[in-house]
Computed example of a mutant assay.
Amino acid sequence: MKRIEIEYCTRCRWLPRAVWLAQELLGTFEADVAEVALVPGTGGVFRVRVDGETVWDRHEQGFPEPSAVKRLVRDRVAPGRDLGHVEEARDPGGQGGQGG
Protein backbone atom coordinates (compact mmCIF):
# COMPACT_ATOMS: atom_id res chain seq x y z
CA MET A 1 0.00 0.00 0.00
CA LYS A 2 1.23 3.44 -0.93
CA ARG A 3 1.58 6.61 1.13
CA ILE A 4 0.52 9.96 -0.31
CA GLU A 5 1.87 13.21 1.13
CA ILE A 6 0.53 16.67 0.46
CA GLU A 7 3.01 19.29 1.60
CA TYR A 8 1.49 22.76 1.87
CA CYS A 9 2.65 26.23 2.92
CA THR A 10 1.36 27.22 6.36
CA ARG A 11 2.27 30.89 5.86
CA CYS A 12 0.17 30.98 2.67
CA ARG A 13 -2.72 29.36 4.56
CA TRP A 14 -3.08 26.55 2.05
CA LEU A 15 -4.29 23.98 4.59
CA PRO A 16 -7.91 24.10 3.28
CA ARG A 17 -6.66 23.43 -0.27
CA ALA A 18 -4.52 20.53 0.98
CA VAL A 19 -7.41 19.05 2.97
CA TRP A 20 -9.72 19.32 -0.04
CA LEU A 21 -7.20 17.55 -2.29
CA ALA A 22 -6.63 14.87 0.38
CA GLN A 23 -10.39 14.27 0.49
CA GLU A 24 -10.52 13.94 -3.29
CA LEU A 25 -7.64 11.43 -3.30
CA LEU A 26 -9.02 9.40 -0.40
CA GLY A 27 -12.44 9.25 -2.02
CA THR A 28 -10.90 7.87 -5.19
CA PHE A 29 -8.13 5.64 -3.81
CA GLU A 30 -9.26 4.66 -0.30
CA ALA A 31 -8.78 0.94 -1.03
CA ASP A 32 -5.40 1.50 -2.72
CA VAL A 33 -3.45 3.67 -0.27
CA ALA A 34 -2.32 3.18 3.30
CA GLU A 35 -2.59 6.86 4.18
CA VAL A 36 -2.77 10.43 2.96
CA ALA A 37 -0.61 12.69 5.09
CA LEU A 38 -0.72 16.48 5.34
CA VAL A 39 2.78 17.90 5.77
CA PRO A 40 3.14 21.52 6.91
CA GLY A 41 5.82 23.51 5.08
CA THR A 42 6.83 27.06 4.17
CA GLY A 43 8.12 28.99 1.19
CA GLY A 44 5.01 28.71 -0.97
CA VAL A 45 5.27 24.93 -1.20
CA PHE A 46 2.39 22.81 -2.47
CA ARG A 47 3.72 19.40 -3.41
CA VAL A 48 2.15 15.95 -3.80
CA ARG A 49 4.28 12.83 -3.30
CA VAL A 50 3.59 9.12 -3.61
CA ASP A 51 6.01 7.03 -1.54
CA GLY A 52 8.47 9.94 -1.56
CA GLU A 53 8.31 10.53 -5.32
CA THR A 54 7.10 14.01 -6.24
CA VAL A 55 4.21 13.79 -8.70
CA TRP A 56 3.13 17.45 -8.52
CA ASP A 57 5.03 20.58 -7.51
CA ARG A 58 3.33 23.99 -7.53
CA HIS A 59 6.64 25.74 -8.19
CA GLU A 60 6.98 23.87 -11.50
CA GLN A 61 3.38 23.17 -12.53
CA GLY A 62 1.15 25.68 -10.73
CA PHE A 63 -1.79 24.63 -8.59
CA PRO A 64 -3.10 21.22 -9.57
CA GLU A 65 -6.50 20.34 -10.91
CA PRO A 66 -7.71 17.31 -8.96
CA SER A 67 -8.19 15.30 -12.17
CA ALA A 68 -4.53 15.79 -13.13
CA VAL A 69 -3.31 14.70 -9.70
CA LYS A 70 -5.69 11.73 -9.68
CA ARG A 71 -4.26 10.48 -12.99
CA LEU A 72 -0.67 10.83 -11.71
CA VAL A 73 -1.48 9.11 -8.43
CA ARG A 74 -3.46 6.38 -10.21
CA ASP A 75 -0.47 5.60 -12.41
CA ARG A 76 1.51 4.82 -9.24
CA VAL A 77 -1.05 3.18 -6.96
CA ALA A 78 -3.53 1.48 -9.31
CA PRO A 79 -2.15 1.38 -12.88
CA GLY A 80 -4.72 0.68 -15.54
CA ARG A 81 -7.65 1.65 -13.33
CA ASP A 82 -10.40 3.60 -15.10
CA LEU A 83 -11.13 6.96 -13.47
CA GLY A 84 -14.37 7.51 -15.37
CA HIS A 85 -15.09 11.17 -16.10
CA VAL A 86 -11.52 12.11 -15.12
CA GLU A 87 -10.28 10.14 -18.12
CA GLU A 88 -12.76 11.90 -20.42
CA ALA A 89 -11.37 15.28 -19.31
CA ARG A 90 -8.00 14.21 -20.70
CA ASP A 91 -9.30 14.09 -24.30
CA PRO A 92 -9.55 17.69 -25.58
CA GLY A 93 -11.34 16.54 -28.75
CA GLY A 94 -14.04 14.67 -26.83
CA GLN A 95 -17.74 15.45 -26.69
CA GLY A 96 -17.63 16.75 -23.09
CA GLY A 97 -16.52 20.33 -23.86
CA GLN A 98 -18.69 23.41 -23.90
CA GLY A 99 -20.09 24.47 -27.24
CA GLY A 100 -19.69 27.96 -28.67
Results as ranks from 00 to 15, higher is better:
residue 33 V to T: 09
residue 69 V to E: 11
residue 77 V to D: 01
residue 8 Y to E: 02
residue 85 H to G: 07
residue 66 P to F: 15
residue 64 P to D: 07
residue 97 G to D: 02
residue 59 H to I: 04
residue 35 E to V: 11
residue 76 R to H: 07
residue 66 P to Y: 15
residue 14 W to P: 01
residue 55 V to S: 00
residue 57 D to K: 07
residue 3 R to T: 02
residue 22 A to W: 08
residue 54 T to M: 00
residue 32 D to M: 08
residue 40 P to Y: 10
residue 82 D to Y: 08
residue 61 Q to H: 14
residue 96 G to A: 10
residue 47 R to T: 15
residue 8 Y to D: 02
residue 1 M to E: 00
residue 45 V to N: 12
residue 39 V to G: 01
residue 84 G to H: 09
residue 87 E to F: 06
residue 30 E to G: 05
residue 4 I to E: 02
residue 11 R to K: 12
residue 42 T to E: 14
residue 81 R to D: 04
residue 22 A to S: 14
residue 78 A to W: 05
residue 64 P to W: 15
residue 71 R to W: 11
residue 13 R to P: 04
residue 29 F to Q: 10
residue 55 V to F: 00
residue 61 Q to W: 06
residue 23 Q to C: 07
residue 59 H to Y: 12
residue 40 P to T: 09
residue 83 L to Q: 08
residue 60 E to R: 15
residue 13 R to T: 06
residue 77 V to C: 00
residue 63 F to G: 08
residue 52 G to H: 07
residue 36 V to F: 01
residue 45 V to Q: 13
residue 30 E to R: 13
residue 25 L to I: 14
residue 79 P to A: 13
residue 94 G to K: 07
residue 29 F to L: 07
residue 66 P to Q: 15
residue 76 R to P: 01
residue 26 L to R: 14
residue 31 A to H: 12
residue 60 E to G: 08
residue 45 V to H: 12
residue 41 G to S: 15
residue 70 K to S: 09
residue 56 W to A: 03
residue 5 E to K: 00
residue 37 A to M: 05
residue 3 R to Y: 02
residue 82 D to H: 09
residue 40 P to N: 10
residue 33 V to I: 15
residue 13 R to L: 10
residue 49 R to I: 04
residue 44 G to K: 11
residue 41 G to H: 04
residue 73 V to F: 11
residue 80 G to F: 08
residue 13 R to E: 11
residue 89 A to M: 12
residue 37 A to G: 10
residue 21 L to Y: 13
residue 50 V to H: 03
residue 49 R to S: 11
residue 96 G to L: 09
residue 37 A to Q: 13
residue 75 D to K: 12
residue 68 A to E: 14
residue 25 L to W: 14
residue 44 G to D: 08
residue 19 V to H: 06
residue 83 L to V: 12
residue 1 M to R: 03
residue 61 Q to F: 06
residue 8 Y to Q: 04
residue 97 G to A: 07
residue 75 D to E: 15
residue 15 L to G: 00
residue 26 L to A: 10
residue 26 L to I: 09
residue 56 W to R: 01
residue 16 P to D: 10
residue 89 A to E: 05
residue 1 M to T: 03
residue 11 R to N: 14
residue 58 R to S: 03
residue 35 E to M: 04
residue 75 D to N: 14
residue 56 W to I: 02
residue 80 G to A: 11
residue 40 P to I: 10
residue 22 A to V: 03
residue 20 W to E: 15
residue 8 Y to F: 15
residue 10 T to K: 11
